[in-house]
Design a protein around this nucleic acid. Structure first.
Lengths: 160, 160
DNA sequence: CCTTCCATTGACCTTCTTTGACTATTATAT
DNA sequence: ATATAATAGTCAAAGAAGGTCAATGGAAGG
């Protein structure tokens, strides 16, 4: 466990607990984690994308930096509209999952609700060779049922 | 003689006596038992299926893992199994909604989670001239997004 | 025996991570 | 202005897991 990428992600998010943005040196960070500098870009691309609710700004050359900004949505009346536009009438699982994480980080949904949502949009729930509506719904719904039980298990573990 | 699969099954169940979940490396386990890695999948599929009360989660790539979670089945030991049978591979909206209500009455899900589930299985979410998986997912997901926001509004009204 | 069902294996596939070579940009010293 | 040093970005390839499936093996029942 303790993936390098995961560690870097958490490291950055820890830096951002107070402030909504953080500025760092790519090479320094890479050196701190003993990895290739491009590893940092990988983490940014996979965990700090716009869909995750972050914006990356950077600058090269002497005194260069990478700045990570958490997007403001406080009081943004069109957040839902924005998300709906982003989704459009076709969206892949990766994007959907990123948006769910985003909602979760903003505490707009609970951990359990996020899990429920993920289960509804997962490959597993939707990749079917059929077209009948009921059949499809069954697939989605079974997935969600499983999720409910998983959530209960989680809850019980935490209650102890 | 004790089948390999049985040994692996018991080995895993021993690991789970205390905790309701374990995380393991497929390849390590296979090596420990001197068998093909896919053997592990066979054991998981035949002895740790949802019908058996378990859920499997996994991740590929570096730092990959297989997590086995034992579900808590309150009271009736096969409630989930019953529900899954009831749903089968085809279910209409009415039935799905009834099951969701039932889960809610049993306090297995919150009001918000129930709403989320309804939104995922609603006519509106699924009755589309779709064929591409992504298109379908988008429809489901947009519905869930709307629901999340509805929930938030509800919450806010109650907070006042 | 023969069939059938469960178990086992191995070849091939998919996903996620990490690295390194090469490229692009910016500041600073000359 | 120009050269150089200091940064960061991109992309393809290698590495590190786990997944699938069809073929084979083996044991129990008929």
């Amino acid at each position: 466990m303790a993936q390098l990428s995961d560690s870097i992600e958490h490291f950055i998010k820890d830096l951002m607990t107070d402030d909504a943005h953080v500025e760092l040196r790519r090479n320094e960070l890479a050196q701190h984690f003993g990895c290739a500098p491009s590893q940092i870009n990988y983490v940014l691309a996979t965990r700090f994308s716009v869909d995750h609710g972050y914006i990356i700004e950077s600058r090269r050359g002497g005194g260069g930096y990478v700045r990570i900004v958490r997007m403001q949505t406080r009081g943004e009346p069109n957040f839902l509209e924005m998300l709906l536009n982003r989704v459009g009438n076709s969206v892949d699982e990766e994007t959907a999952v990123a948006i769910i994480s985003n909602l979760l980080e903003r505490k707009m949904i609970t951990v359990k609700e996020a899990a429920l949502m993920r289960s509804a949009v997962s490959r597993n729930a939707l990749a079917l060779p059929i077209s009948a509506k009921d059949v499809l719904r069954a697939a989605v719904f079974r997935n969600m049922l499983v999720q409910v039980f998983k959530n209960l298990e989680e809850e019980n573990r935490n209650d102890v």
